[in-house]
């Protein structure tokens, strides 16, 4: 078991405000980790920093991806290396066909790896195969990227893109929010289909419900810019039951007893 992602004592700020404050996290191959935590804790910020979004400044610490310094790479290079972010708020691109977009992305990544572009017929076969897993309607392929998609369709489209691009590290930012039960199952099926010994996933969520379908190896709680607690799948259940204040109270007790 080797590490796909190693984050060491990471500090990052957005527009001068420090959001991540000494975050440590290691994901090994084949693992799925869940990240939970209160609103505004810095979960999406973590995803954006890993993906290399403009405006997110790392002030200290390291991020290693497959042993390489990820922070040295441009955003698109990180993607081509196999980092995928399923957006909390997927972006609309009017006039750009969804299939065209995805094929451009796939071929950009293939070019980066020195592979020939995939021709239209082979791409179509790949797409059909992945669509089945996600139970997505064909017509979403013909429409512009995310334009006029329902909230659930947007989220499913993210996972569909992930399924086609087959990343090494996938970060799913609240992909479950706003999904009905069937969609949730479809998304989980997409994620589980990709689950294998060569990959790792970071699943950001507020609800333990998702973790019934995607069973995590580790659950972390991110609060105020750092990981404050890590545990097994049962941690999510406890959080669901008792809320984040429970953690704070516990910490308080630990403090008092020491």
């Amino acid at each position: 078991m080797s590490a796909i992602l190693e984050i060491k004592d990471l500090y990052a700020s957005v527009e001068g405000t420090e959001i991540l404050k000494g975050l440590n996290l290691t994901l090994n191959t084949g693992e799925i980790h869940a990240i939970m935590g209160p609103n505004g804790a810095g979960k999406s910020t973590l995803g954006n920093v890993i993906a290399g979004r403009d405006g997110y400044t790392v002030t200290a610490g390291e991020v290693l991806f497959k042993g390489k310094d990820l922070l040295q790479l441009d955003t698109e290079e990180r993607a081509c290396e196999g980092v995928f972010l399923a957006f909390q708020y997927p972006v609309e691109i009017p006039g750009v066909n969804n299939t065209y977009f995805l094929r451009a992305a796939l071929n950009a990544q293939r070019a980066y790896r020195g592979e020939a572009p995939m021709d239209a017929a082979a791409f179509l076969r790949l797409v059909r195969e992945k669509l089945k897993i996600l139970d997505l309607k064909d017509d979403l392929l013909k429409r512009a990227v995310n334009v006029g998609f329902s909230g659930g369709e947007k989220k499913r489209n993210e996972i569909f893109q992930m399924a086609v691009l087959e990343p090494t590290l996938a970060i799913l930012d609240e992909t479950d929010s706003g999904l009905d039960i069937d969609a949730l199952r479809a998304v989980a099926a997409g994620v589980n289909a990709l689950r294998d010994a060569g990959r790792a996933m970071l699943v950001i969520t507020h609800y333990q419900r998702l973790l019934d379908y995607i069973v995590p190896d580790v659950v972390h709680v991110l609060a105020d810019g750092k990981i404050v607690r890590s545990g097994g799948a049962e941690l999510a259940l406890q959080l669901e039951e008792k809320g984040y204040t429970w953690l704070q109270q516990e910490d308080q007790q630990v403090l008092e007893s020491s």
Partner: peptide
């Protein structure tokens, strides 16, 4: 910002 980041994140230059 957002559209560009979305494309870059998928590997498009």
């Amino acid at each position: 910002e957002d559209q560009l980041f979305y494309c870059l994140q998928r590997g498009i230059s």
